[in-house]
Design a protein around this nucleic acid. Structure first.
Lengths: 186, 186, 186, 186
DNA sequence: AATGAATGAGTGTTCATTCAT
DNA sequence: CATGAATGAACACTCATTCAT
């Protein structure tokens, strides 16, 4: 079975995400990305219109990944357990440093083109968490507020972990928010 | 008083911070920075060893700014009021988008050289907040944990505000944390 | 009658001539040419060995076109009338800007390969005009000299018209040469 | 005495003219031009905004060269002698192949930018020749018509010489036009 | 026979950095 | 001390060409 075009596009996007997190999107050259994906460098422009288009693809893939991962969290029992599953996933991510999405989105937000909706992944995340709270009986507005607080805490923790090069903030914030989630009363 | 060398260095650093937030450090050229500072472009290398050295200066200046601003917050009555002053400052910052420090630090962290301690500003911030909690009677460890939670929340809110292009997350998280701070019991 | 291979080759060559005149042969990509001919881009290399080979085909087609057009001029009464028909044709060509052959040949002459005989069309033109003069009784050498003078004038006029973006030079030179042809004495 | 900026710009322009004639402007890379001028390749963009700007400089330099050369022809006795001096100069140019200006201008005319007035040199040439005829007593209009015919002939001859790779057309047309100039009656 | 997909070599352009003055 | 001029190394992007089907 041949590797098809979409396979290469996906591998390039994945490599671009990896590099964007590790060394920054701007500092990652098209050649870097191609090499990391194991794809000939001239081919990148067969799959993407421009480097800006790669940025768009990253933003899209990040949002898609949130949706895909949330399906896993959904497997847990009730809403409280699902939210706890999300929190646990963040603790385990990137060697305890939490989500990469915040750092990448902050950089992509400045990319030139009509490009990406850099906030798509975060929006999806908040929407998913809000749905759990609605299932618990909260009004749409209250659910969204609680969801935002939850994501804000975990994203802030990932930021602190990255900047301080220390996974402690993640562990502590995760523990705090798990208690907060467990104690949820409608 | 004549403009001395350190004056130009400071103006260049300030301009670099502005540009790093607005368009990214990588996308800002040395010429951009010099122009924004109103300094001849060739002169940058008289004041800095390299662009990486500018990154270091940014990190240092950001940490210094935290110290300088905290002096203002210290003017408030007791520890609880000082922490509230910090929170209020974040709400007002950058047109409601909160602190720029997180976004800049996340990018600087990847700068090549031995360069900057990208986390210096956050470390200073946490240290300042921890000092307030210690003054309230918390043990060093407990104070640091509470400080970390506070900064994590505000930095997470700034991240969400930036990425979602919406100042609501800041306002909500600020209100939440002000209540949390006000309710502090030793 | 089905479109056969030679039909596509001809359409590609015609499109290449059009583009070579309008924007230059070098600036015209293989994809441009294929698109202009309404032919799949990958197919160009089925009909041509290389881009250089396209250049050869252009030179050949241009020479063939001279031969084909001269058949029309030959329909006029005597040699003087035929030469006048050639001149009139130049005045009407390309919206009054005269022949495209000179501009194209000047560019092709520099094409890398053993490629084309860029001068083929001009050679054919001079040969045809010389034949008219021979028919009027001039020696081979004298006929060739007169033919060269005639073509030189019309090609110079086309060059001036193109460069000055003005059709006046064509009209004036045509009028001048028609008088010169009409006044021919053996 | 240091080589100043304008010196390098001039050398680059001269090299660009040489290469544009020899192999075409499009086929000449910035690196080619820099190498031919003996200038570091990165420096071209210190002296020119873009490759298109080089095209503009060529057109300007070609027009300037016409003005400079015409000063030499002006040294001859009367108007008829000056025009003859122009013709003689064409016969001697480029190893008997005549002026390079036509071939270059035909290519530059297609350059993208606001770029050059590709016809500037030809306009200057016609204007100079017209001035000679006016000095002989022709009306402005008649002088311009004669000037145009003269330049048209010589430029056409250069085109034929280049395309046929034969200097004969130049020699013949020059002889013809010198007689025509000598026989000028007001 | 015919072509869409894929790519490597090369192009114009940018920019951090150097250095003569 | 300070800087404008100059540049080499690198980058995003293009395109003639190949080739599996």
């Amino acid at each position: 079975m041949p590797r098809n075009a979409s396979d290469k596009r996906d591998r390039l996007t994945a490599a671009a995400i990896e590099l964007a997190y590790a060394q920054g999107f701007d500092r990652s050259t098209i050649a870097d990305i191609a090499a990391a994906a194991g794809v000939p460098s001239g081919s990148v422009y067969y799959h993407f219109r421009s480097k800006d288009d790669v940025a768009s693809a990253i933003a899209g893939a990040l949002a898609d990944a949130v949706v895909a991962e949330s399906a896993g969290w959904d497997a847990a029992g009730g809403p409280r357990e699902r939210l706890a599953a999300y929190i646990d996933a963040q603790v385990g991510a990137e060697g305890g440093r939490g989500s990469r999405v915040g750092a990448i989105a902050l950089e992509l937000r400045r990319q030139a083109g009509e490009a990406a909706e850099a906030g798509a992944a975060h929006r999806a995340l908040v929407a998913w968490a809000a749905a759990q709270y609605e299932e618990l009986g909260f009004s749409a507005e209250a659910a969204e507020a609680r969801a935002m607080h939850l994501i804000t805490g975990m994203e802030g923790a990932a930021l602190m972990a990255a900047v301080l090069e220390d996974s402690t903030p993640i562990e502590r914030e995760a523990a705090h928010l798990k208690r907060w989630v467990a104690a949820t009363k409608v």
